[in-house]
Simulated assay, not measured.
Amino acid sequence: MTARAASMSDVARLAGVSSQTVSRVSNNSDSVTTETRDRVVAAMNELGYRPNSAARALKSGRFHSIGVLMFTLETLGNIRTLDAIAVAAAEKGYSIDLISMLDPSTGTISTALSRLDEEAVDGIIVILETHELMESAIHFPTRIPVVIVDSQLRKDYPSVNADQEQGAALAVRHLLDLGHPTVWHVAGPESSNSASMREASWRNILQSEGRTVPPVLRGTWGADSGYRAGLEIAANPDISAVFTANDQMALGVLRALHEAGRRVPEDVSIVGFDNTEESAEYWPPLTTIHQDFAGAGAQAMSLLFDAIEGREVPSGVRTLSTDLVVRQSTGPYIAR
C-alpha cells in the first residue's frame, strides 16, 4: 500500500504551529520569526513535505519563477550576471527558467519570449547585448514585467548596463596621459551594443583631442581574433598603444607581440576591458576596465521584484560606473 503524502496539517502538528504559519513559511513570508521558520522547515524535511507550487500559484497569483533569456553562456560577463540573478532569485524563494540562444535574431527572440510567457513565470530578465533589441518587431509580454540587461537601445523598458562609454574613455585617456600620440583599437563584433559603444567612445576621445584615428581592427571577443589583430599590430612599428574591447582579445594581442619580440609595455602599451579574474595573471598583468557584472544582475533582479510586487518601476537605463585598473601592461610612451 502506498504511504500517504505528508500534508500541511501534518507539518503544523509536528512543528507545533498553525497551518497558516506553515503556509506563510512555504510562501517565504517575512511575518514568521526565524525560530519558527526553522522549526517548520525541520518538520517539512522530516516528513518529506513539499509545498504544492501550482496550488500556491492559484492562491497567491505568483509562480515563484523568473524567466531568463540570454544569448550565450560562453562569456564570463554573462556567467557572472546569471550567477547574481540566481542568487537573488534563491534569496526570494524563486527558481530560474533559462533559455540560452545561439541565434539572437528578431524571430527567435520573440519566440523565446513567447515561450517564457507561456511557462508560468512572474517576470523576465533579458540579457541580449545585440542590436536586435532595437527592432520594433520583437514582441515583449504585456502581462508580466520585463527588465533588460546589457542594452541601452530599448529605453521603453527598465534596463541595467555598465557605462560602456565611460569605461572606454578611461582606457583611451589613460594611454594618452602616458604620452602616446594615438591609440589603436581592437573592437568587438559589429552586432554587439557594448562593442559599438566602446568603439564610438574611443573614436570620440581621439577626435576631441585632435589625435589621428587609426583604422579599426575587428575581433570576435575571442583570444584567437585578438591574436590575428596582434599580428597586424606587431608588424607596424609605429603602434605604441592599443585598447582592446575585452580582456580575452588582449590576451591574443599579448601573445602575438611576444612572438614578434615586441615588449609590453616598453614597445606597446595595452588596455583591456572587463577585468576578468585571469587578467591579473597575464604576462604582463593587464591594465583593464572593471565593470560590475554581478551588480548588474543584482540590480536587474531588484527592479524586477519591485515590479512583481506592484511597485512602480520607471522605464529607462540605469548605468553602473566602470573603473580603470592599472597594472603592468601600460607604460610611458618612448619616442623612437
Rank of each mutant, 00 (worst) to 15 (best):
V264T: 02
A169T: 13
I125N: 01
L251Q: 07
E209A: 12
W202F: 04
V264R: 12
D274R: 13
A169M: 15
G179D: 14
A137N: 06
V147K: 10
F293G: 14
S26G: 02
A335Q: 12
R13Q: 12
L128S: 04
A245E: 06
A57M: 03
S302A: 14
R198G: 06
V149K: 13
L176A: 14
R263I: 06
S31D: 06
P332S: 13
R211I: 02
L58N: 09
E232Q: 05
L178P: 09
R13L: 03
S19E: 11
L320Y: 14
R263A: 14
R13H: 00
A57P: 00
R154P: 01
E259Q: 08
S114F: 08
T319R: 14
D306W: 02
A89Y: 13
L324N: 06
P285D: 15
I138T: 00
V121H: 02
S114Y: 07
D30H: 12
A256N: 12
E190R: 09
L73A: 11
S151L: 04
G226H: 00
V17K: 05
S329F: 07
R218L: 05
V325C: 08
D83V: 01
A169V: 14
R318G: 02
S191I: 06
A112I: 02
L304V: 07
N45K: 11
T21N: 02
E46H: 01
Y282M: 02
S279A: 13
Q164L: 09
R218Q: 14
S136Q: 15
A298K: 11
K92C: 01
F305M: 03
N161L: 09
T244D: 04
S95Q: 02
I109Y: 01
I205V: 15
T2S: 10
T212A: 09
D267G: 14
Q328D: 15
S194I: 13
Q20P: 09
Y49H: 04
L113C: 02
I334S: 10
R336F: 08
V313I: 08
A112Q: 08
R327G: 05
S53C: 10
H64K: 02
M8S: 10
A294M: 08
T130M: 01
V149S: 11
R198T: 01
L231H: 04
G261N: 01
V213Y: 15
L82P: 09
F293V: 14
A296Q: 14
A86G: 10
H174N: 03
S192T: 00
E199Q: 15
L304M: 11
E281A: 10
K92Q: 11
R173S: 10
D38Q: 15
L304R: 14
A169L: 10
T130P: 11
H258Q: 15
R218M: 09
L170T: 00
E259V: 05
R143C: 04
L133T: 06
G16Q: 03
Q20M: 13
S95E: 13
M301A: 08
D117E: 11
R173Y: 07
